[in-house]
């Protein structure tokens, strides 16, 4: 079972992952295999079962509102591919 190329392209766009034309068939086929595996889930009736997002039934502990983080800009900017004037640079953002 393959996923059609159009679906793969849509997913690639959503996930912002370039997929070359040469590999798109391969990707479609393998995605299809995985989806066929996960489609086994459809066989079971789960009506009324509460979905489980976390393995344990714990609740969130909140943090006090305090400033605890120092300025470490230079350390962080040093990791970036391109910076200037304390800013991260990216190709022009168009609104």
């Amino acid at each position: 079972m393959a996923v059609d190329a159009q679906t793969v392209e849509k997913l690639a766009e959503l996930a912002r992952i370039a997929i070359s034309d040469e590999t798109i068939d391969e990707v479609s086929n393998r995605l299809g295999d995985v989806l066929q595996l996960v489609d086994q889930l459809q066989a079971i009736n789960t009506e009324g079962v509460e979905p489980m997002a976390h393995p344990l039934d714990e609740v969130q502990v909140l943090r006090a509102d305090r400033v605890t983080e120092p300025n470490r800009r230079e350390e962080f900017l040093a990791l970036a591919p391109q910076t200037e004037a304390g800013l991260y640079l990216v190709p022009k953002v168009i609104d």
Binding site: Q82, E84, A85, G86, L87, Y88, L89, V90, P91, K92, V93
Partner: peptide
Amino acid sequence: FHGMSGID
């Protein structure tokens, strides 16, 4: 910035 945008 040389045709780029800066992110703060």
